[in-house]
């Protein structure tokens, strides 16, 4: 008998397959950032079915979902800021934060519904409650939040029912944090390699990005004398966002790669620049009108770009089978080694 089928692998190669190495190098060159970056991942060889993706890339539409992530975050953090500012007697900041929360929540509902394949069936989201489905949990966060924040913003504009307003703002604030962070679970609870791998970090990225955005937007519209809390929240958020995104971009071997290369890589570079400059400007000139407007806008833009970058990076990782196959192969090899080690010692 020839070795052939008797040996695992047996030396079979796809007859017409392109050499895996070439393909990867081309991809790499096109998307590399200049700044002396060290290759994080070896040029590992992997097999695929004609280079086709193994998992299906998300069908979520691109401007809709990243915008929803951004608006939900900004609205969530503003609602918290608004409720606390209300209790501490800052009427101008309270008003701006409530309007931001209300406007953001209504817009985010619009984007979420528009993204559905059957928008007229939006209410089917509320026919069951499933803790295993982040979108189900999210619907039960978004529904009360947008109702409370929207109503609070409306009565704020009309100037009716001051006590009801305070209650509505508090209810919105209660759901504000979960609204900003559940969207991270929405992305990570998928088979998309670059999202799933960062599931312990992405909620913090989204929370901090939400604070940078919410703080930035309220900073733009609030008189500088009252916007102290906005500035503090925005700068803290920006600092955490930069730290956590750095870990997302570097800590996960090959599945961190999509965050650094190509379109998502450029978006996240821009996001980092906006957020860092925005935070710096806030500290330096945030107490001037012009400085507040400039830095607040930069912070919001940084948050928006972060959402787009994270979203696009996930799509990139879903479309290339190497991000699915190589980590799973490594996982299998590690498990086999572990099994082998335990069988030797026992």
């Amino acid at each position: 008998m020839t070795e052939g089928l008797a040996t695992p692998g047996a030396g079979w190669r796809r007859a017409d397959g392109p050499p895996a190495q070439q393909r990867q190098k081309r991809r790499r060159r096109s998307g590399r950032r200049a700044a002396g970056e060290v290759a994080m991942v070896d040029e590992a060889e992997f097999t695929s079915y004609y280079g086709r993706p193994i998992i299906k890339p998300p069908v979520w539409k691109s401007p809709d979902v990243p915008l929803y992530l951004f608006l939900g975050g900004a609205a969530g953090s503003s609602s918290i800021l608004g409720a606390i500012a209300d209790l501490s007697g800052r009427p101008a900041l309270t008003r701006v934060a409530r309007l931001t929360a209300g406007g953001g929540s209504i817009l985010s509902v619009v984007f979420l519904i528009h993204d559905l394949g059957r928008p007229e069936r939006f209410l089917h989201m509320l026919r069951v409650f499933k803790p295993t489905s982040p979108l189900s949990v999210g619907s039960y966060i978004l529904a009360p939040f947008s109702a409370a924040a929207g109503a609070t913003a409306a009565v704020e504009l009309l100037g009716w029912f001051p006590r009801l307003k305070r209650f509505g703002g508090a209810v919105a604030a209660l759901f504000g944090g979960p609204l900003a962070t559940y969207t991270a679970v929405l992305l990570t609870n998928t088979a998309v390699p670059s999202w799933h791998a960062v599931h312990d970090k992405l909620p913090f990225v989204f929370a901090s990005s939400a604070m940078a955005a919410g703080g930035g937007i309220t900073m733009v519209f609030t008189p500088v004398a009252e916007a102290g809390p906005s500035r503090k929240m925005a700068v803290t958020g920006a600092a955490i966002e930069l730290t956590m995104m750095r870990r997302v971009e570097h800590d996960h071997g090959i599945v961190s790669e999509p965050y650094r290369i190509g379109r998502p890589g450029r978006m996240l570079d821009a996001a980092r620049a906006c957020t860092a400059v925005g935070a710096g400007l806030t500290v330096l000139v945030g107490r001037t009108r012009l400085g507040a407007v400039a830095s607040g806008t930069l912070l919001a833009a940084g948050s928006l770009l972060t959402r787009f970058g994270v979203f696009e990076a996930g799509l990139t990782s879903a479309r290339d089978p190497k991000y699915t196959v190589i980590p799973q192969r490594e996982r299998l090899a590690a498990r086999q080694q572990e099994d082998h080690a335990s069988s030797v010692t026992s």
Binding site: S77, S88, G177, V185, T188, H199, F204, A207, S230, K232
Partner: peptide, 25 residues
Amino acid sequence: DLPAMWKSAATAAAMMLGVALSAVL
């Protein structure tokens, strides 16, 4: 990994509350 994700999300939401509170105070 969903339980771990929900835990991270809850911690992150609590973090937002803490940051906002300390920012105002």
